[in-house]
């Protein structure tokens, strides 16, 4: 009844009696209350860890999600791998650089062209 209104005599007496009764608790009860209080105050320490856990758990989940995204989608398995140092890659580069060779490579009957070229080499060697 702090600020709202004045206590009348009866209210003041009941208040004084009840408060005095609260102070007259036996030792065992006071001891149990003190232990309960200590236990409650000790609960404040884990709270800080819970704050950190609440912050770190979403961050960890986000990092895991990003890692999985990179593993699954960052590695494009549909695209062919090109090793610039391999003979096939060198052949492809020469083919693209030489316009005539590229046109020949687009012909449908490549075997015939190779046969004709081989025959021409034989004739030139024989003649």
């Amino acid at each position: 009844m702090s600020n709202d209104e004045q206590l009348d005599d009866f209210e003041a007496r009941t208040r004084a009696t009840l408060r005095a009764g609260s102070e007259s608790l036996d030792g065992a009860t006071r001891s149990r209350l003190a232990r309960a209080r200590a236990t409650a105050v000790a609960q404040l320490a884990p709270r800080r860890r819970r704050w950190q856990l609440q912050l770190l758990a979403p961050a960890g989940a986000l990092a895991a999600a990003m890692l999985l995204t990179v593993l699954f989608f960052g590695h494009d398995r549909g695209a062919p791998e090109v090793n610039p140092g391999s003979p096939a890659a060198l052949y492809d580069m020469e083919l693209l650089a030489d316009a005539d060779a590229f046109e020949i490579s687009q012909e449908a009957d490549l075997e015939f062209i190779e046969w004709a070229a081989a025959m021409a080499e034989l004739e030139s060697a024989g003649g």
């Binding site: 009840l18 408060r19 009764g21 609260s22 102070e23 608790l25 009860t29 006071r30 209350l33 003190a34 309960a36 209080r37 200590a38 409650a40 105050v41 404040l44 320490a45 709270r47 800080r48 704050w51 912050l55």
Partner: peptide, 25 residues
């Protein structure tokens, strides 16, 4: 973020010690 400092623990201990007997009654 709000943290539980030693001051907070001491304040809570004082508060509970002040109210615990009346609360029990």
């Amino acid at each position: 973020l709000p943290a539980m400092t030693d001051d907070t623990g001491q304040a809570l201990n004082r508060f509970l010690a002040e109210v615990e007997r009346r609360a029990f009654r």
